[in-house]
């Protein structure tokens, strides 16, 4: 978010996560900037005018920086597209770039409008994650699935916030689509579950490619939504 709103000279340092293509859509843009690992000592030595932190940043670090007199702005994680809009506008104000933020949000609204449409037949969809967890109807991912014209299997199973869905139960519910996030490198059984033959051979498994787009409140969220819409459309075409 900072990368798209701020002038280059406004950025003193970025979180290490900004350069990881798995968690940041703007990893290439982040390349020229120095990074930090979020330790209070490291941040203090940069003597910045402003420190941006997430609610999940360690409490001790945030308190330490506040005590040292730095200006801190804390962003809670987003749970909806509306909150994403609000966060972008707030960040625009904080960074002194309100016009830029307003333009971005306006463009997002236009694109969101174009992507959402009346869907008569919604495919029953499970967004299935490592360790056999499924996405709930509440929260950003759930909202995006609904916006893309999908019927979330979690609604049927009474899992508003998602939760554990045994593989066997998933298969027995006969979903039309099973969405899987992009694979991690390295092996783990938690992610090997997503490669189980019963899923792969079902022909319903669809591996999403836009992993990083889901992470931050940027227009890239709509890339993720567009991928969901495209997935639904290719399912429709196959009916």
């Amino acid at each position: 978010m900072v990368l798209m709103l701020a002038e280059p000279e406004q950025i003193a340092s970025l979180s290490l996560l900004a350069k990881d293509a798995r968690t940041s859509v703007y990893a290439d843009r982040a390349a020229p900037y120095p990074t930090n690992t979020g330790k209070a000592e490291e941040v203090a030595l940069l003597a910045p005018d402003l420190v941006l932190a997430g609610t999940y940043t360690t409490r001790a670090t945030v308190q330490m920086l506040e005590k040292l007199g730095y200006r801190l702005e804390i962003f809670p994680p987003i749970n909806s597209l509306a909150e994403a809009r609000a966060n972008i506008l707030r960040m625009g104000d904080i960074l002194g770039q309100p016009d830029r933020a307003a333009d971005i949000v306006a463009a997002m609204d236009v694109r969101l409008d174009a992507l959402t449409e009346e869907v008569t037949h919604r495919p029953l969809t499970a967004f299935y994650h490592a360790r056999g967890n499924t996405t709930g109807t509440e929260g950003l991912q759930g909202e995006m699935m609904t916006a893309a014209g999908m019927e979330n299997i979690a609604a049927m199973l009474d899992l508003p916030y998602g939760g554990s869905l045994p593989l066997e139960k998933l298969v027995m519910e006969t979903p039309d689509l099973i969405l899987i996030g992009p694979p991690y490198s390295g092996h783990s059984q938690a992610t090997e579950l997503l490669e189980h033959p019963v899923l792969v051979n079902s022909g319903k498994r669809h591996v999403l490619t836009a992993g990083a787009a889901w992470v931050c409140e940027t227009p890239a969220l709509l890339d993720a939504l567009a991928e969901l819409v495209a997935t639904r459309k290719s399912w429709e075409a196959a009916q």
Partner: peptide, 9 residues
Amino acid sequence: SQNPYAVYE
């Protein structure tokens, strides 16, 4: 491991 889920294993 590079896979964050490997620790659960």
